[in-house]
Write a protein that binds this DNA or RNA. Sequence first.
DNA 1: TTGAAAGCGCTAACAA
DNA 2: TTGTTAGCGCTTTCAA
Lengths: 335, 335
Amino acid sequence: MKSVTIKDVAKAAGVSYSTVSRALTGSPEISEETRERILQICREMNYTTNTVARSMVMKSTKLLGLILTSVNNPFMSELAYYIDRQARERGYNIILCNSSRDAEQERELFELMMGRQVDGILIFPSGMDSYNKLRAYLSRVPTVFIGENLREAPESYVSVDNYRGAQIGVEYLYSLGHRNILYFGRRRGSTTHQLRAEGYADACRRLGLTPQYCNNTFSSSSIKYGYQMAKQLFSQKRNYSAIFAATDTNALGIMQAAEEIGLKIPEELSLLGFDNIHDSGLPRIELSTVEQPKKMLAAVAVDTLIDKIQNELTGYSHRILSPTLIERSSCARVK
Amino acid sequence: MKSVTIKDVAKAAGVSYSTVSRALTGSPEISEETRERILQICREMNYTTNTVARSMVMKSTKLLGLILTSVNNPFMSELAYYIDRQARERGYNIILCNSSRDAEQERELFELMMGRQVDGILIFPSGMDSYNKLRAYLSRVPTVFIGENLREAPESYVSVDNYRGAQIGVEYLYSLGHRNILYFGRRRGSTTHQLRAEGYADACRRLGLTPQYCNNTFSSSSIKYGYQMAKQLFSQKRNYSAIFAATDTNALGIMQAAEEIGLKIPEELSLLGFDNIHDSGLPRIELSTVEQPKKMLAAVAVDTLIDKIQNELTGYSHRILSPTLIERSSCARVK
DNA sequence: TTGAAAGCGCTAACAA
DNA sequence: TTGTTAGCGCTTTCAA
């Protein structure tokens, strides 16, 4: 398993090992002839550059840390896929870690990544506290937050315009004739969700509707929680014709609860989600939703981070992307 | 951004830097008193060990390469999640890469990972060729294949008993009264799929049924392909009461095609999948399927690899896990 | 128990 | 154009 080094190649080629290094790094101060000869020998000997050693002297690992709450979540896994693609295209690789939505773990992972000398970190924070808990590290390693809107925080982040997204959703339901729209999934501790709730409330007000909430402060946007809350909700009288769910996963839970009691979507109740996770486009589900442009989110996040690294930028940037409406079949026109 | 090194700490503590190293690594040849004092200073100075430098001398990066065809696939992302957890528990981190199901990319990624000096590689191969294309590297870096059954190949792999899984599926449908079961998704280039097809055929024979195939050799197990093939299939006369799909994604495509022409599942047609991806348990979908135990697949793969690394094992192991049937609502009893 | 020094594989400044 | 050498931050042998 002993691997061949630059010295082995040098010996075989009868040159000094710095000459081999020059041939490998594409340095101009070497004759084309010897370069070819050395490269040929490298191939024959199955030489591969030891990136770790190179990193040591270059003080750059070309490694990006990616901290997600969980890849095992359709939204994040899609993000992770595009992030890998974009990063690789720009010559970087990804170290992946899941924080399980735990701020303390995020902190530990930050330290771990810094120890590993990653050139930068991309983090999908679990909530507002993340930023505060991580603050101490942010001056030590280039970081870009993704997904969560950090408002006026002096740190780079890329997120979607959640406020506008909620407005788009309300306007869409309004255009279908809905005048009583329930907002489902209001939640504390996340700016993303605060902005969505605000966007909903303001749009209602502007259109002359009364905001209605299903008041839950649960911490998870899982299908299960959506299901449980919806169960409870459906046991009460319904004075709304549409539900606008804060996340697609919540919407999926609502769908399940509706299914169980024979409540027809969209015939008897319209349902609109937010995120456009992969699941939502599945046959039979066909959830209408407000989409977060995941591919672009990933590309912008990676580019922002790499630019920050390569240009040693000291400022920060807030990039807010526009959400769009995806019409499928979970919303119907009011008769 | 200049980080503090072992030398800075040594200077501050008034000791040589090898003493600091000893305090950090938990070496016994140091007094408890000075260790405490040094550790305290490290904390005060925000010292973090440079893992890259340590890796150089230790000749171990505590990094595992994970090559998937795509994390943006519910099966793989679940796997990736559990792999990260298990690896982290054992002190390793993951470098994630997507091969896009391309054997040449797999080869490139292998070289890349070797250059990065990963301690081992976990690969979900795209097919049978993978093994052949990668052969040259396998003696140079500990590798464990995951998901794909490599038959008698002298390399470690962890997979599910696909042959048995297909049998379980057929037996289940048989027990529901089905006597004409169509196998959907037979595919070349993958042992996994060959074994599933064999398991299906043998089970049919044993039960006195005639194997029927929807003969497609497509290369993708996406929903889209399932949908397209099913469209075509449904335009012909149906002489079967159940479809056994080679993968859940294919089954989802079938479901979509059935939906479109108003063919009721399970009332008019039973549908059974294979894999038990997350999507299959969604409300409204409720696909019955043969499950691959993903968490265990991940844990066994990681453990096999790490054991191989740490014990410098030279042999190989084939671990075949048992699939189980997940009953949901896409299969009905024949009247 | 501690310090001095070698060396991991590489890049780059300096000399020739 | 090529070789020599220092040094990246760390662990570990050898001496003290």
